[in-house]
Design a protein around this nucleic acid. Sequence first.
DNA 1: AATCGCGCCTGACGGC
DNA 2: TGCCGTCAGGCGCGAT
Length: 271
Amino acid sequence: MPELPEVETTRRGIAPHITGHRISGVIVREPRLRWPIPPDLGQKLRGRRIQSVGRRGKYLLLEADQGAVIIHLGMSGSLRLVDPVEPPLRHDHLDILFENDRCLRLRDPRRFGAVLWMESDPRGHGLLARLGPEPLESDFDGDYLYGRSRGRRTAIKPFLMDNRIVVGVGNIYACESLYLAGIHPLRPAGRISRNRYRRLASSIQQTLCQAIAAGGTTLRDFLSSEGRPGYFRQQLQVYGRAGEPCPRCSTPIRQVRQGQRSTFFCSRCQT
DNA sequence: AATCGCGCCTGACGGC
DNA sequence: TGCCGTCAGGCGCGAT
């Protein structure tokens, strides 16, 4: 499921192939994503040149001259570069065709993703405007988390997954970072010391960097733009490992429900 | 303001 | 074999 490392892997995979190239057409096979794909997307895009491929949190930004395509991969989305003659498969909802005879193809079985068009700076879009800092940028650190968490009674794990606090940390990387930092996922966010937040911020950065280096995590769906899976799954310490021994102390990994999601942790190492 | 729970959607999987 | 219930979950949104 695409979190920040998977989106970044995708960004790096597609950028060299489409940057500087002109869009020749758009094929929408299924517009019903989280929000409908804009019916006039083809008119808006035809003839425009992609100037850069950016990322804000889990949003990919295909920045053209005057405007940008905003893409979210949701739970099951992936983007691939294909030959336009390659026949589309089930769930291949959108093709963006380029004059260099490449085709950027969006596949999204669960259709939780989104494709939007923004006429001006995409970072001003309502969905992006109130996002928290990038975890790998310098304005994110333990002191920032400490400040934002004062007075908050919510548990640290949903706090970390709140994209107004920090972007890009989904269920997998929240579990892994908390394990690495030795913090119990159910602990109230407002009852964690500054020093522990410093360790947590480092753990988040370390986890995300290692996952990016491995090309992301593939559980079921995720494939890179070249069609390869991510290899970080083998490095997961707790996620998806309920009942297995903790890598550090051998206590069986526990699984609990937090909100609507599964949380994995070691009840001995995380306090 | 903070917090909680819902619903969107398909595929995999287990039980009968 | 086939059917049905459950789970996976990012995230905006409405209710409290």
